[in-house]
Design a protein around this nucleic acid. Structure first.
Lengths: 119, 119
DNA sequence: AAAAAAGGTAACTCAACGGTTACCAATGGG
DNA sequence: CCCATTGGTAACCGTTGAGTTACCTTTTTT
């Protein structure tokens, strides 16, 4: 399961938020949430496979801690959605109007935004 | 479905990435992906309910466009995981050592990180 | 007016998720 | 040495998600 799917679950997000305050044991995490310990254990397994947490074995205890670096893909995705169109919206509107006026007979084929016409 | 679950699906992420380049019709989006048009339509419904996209009806066509503002919750969550401990890690380590030395008899009860002892 | 295009919805199937209880191994304290 | 603690895993179950095909309405085109 990748990081996107891992953070889709509210309980897993709470676990990550908790671990942002410092490492914790499984029993402690389970005590703070209204689900059974095996459920917590499996959520931690999912988070581990996604690289979002890592565990240190200390005797019979297992201490989980956050690995924020694994959120890189998510951050990259969010950033990619932020890229603005290279041409201002108003300019596109004006160009679209002109294209429509001069090629009214041509059927609209592929898409709405006039990027293709620009290219 | 909230924004977290909405972006958990790879196909929906591709749709959002595509819409970052400009609005598009359902048939165009379907043509660019290896799934049926009804599947695309339902993904767009999910994205709409999450507030991530919005549609303009133009005759028989429906033009979907991105609404990046709906990602606010996701950004906030990521930012919340970035908060560093208020005290440097090395200082915590030193303090933990001291606590262990001076209260060796006390059973470890709640959690690993020594924030509680600080408070 | 008829046909084609665009797009939403319903019904169905199958796989994946998340929860539970039961059970196991390993470690540490009396 | 015994037993409590910690934590992982298996088996089971109900729900949800995502895909498909079939069908419908609305709008445009010829």
């Amino acid at each position: 399961m990748d990081a996107f799917a891992a953070i889709a679950d509210p309980l897993r997000r709470e676990l990550l938020t908790r671990l942002a305050d410092g490492p914790a044991r499984v029993v402690d995490l389970a005590a703070e949430h209204p689900v059974s310990r095996p459920a917590i254990s499996r959520h931690l397994k999912v988070l581990t496979e996604a690289g979002l947490v890592e565990a240190d074995d200390l005797g019979r205890e297992r201490h989980y801690r956050l690995r924020p670096a694994a959120l890189h893909d998510v951050r990259t995705f969010l950033a990619s959605l932020d890229r603005r169109p290279l041409i201002a919206e108003s300019a596109l509107d004006a160009l679209e109007t002109e294209v429509r006026r001069t090629s009214r007979e041509r059927r609209r084929t592929t898409q709405t935004a006039p990027q293709e016409e620009i290219a």
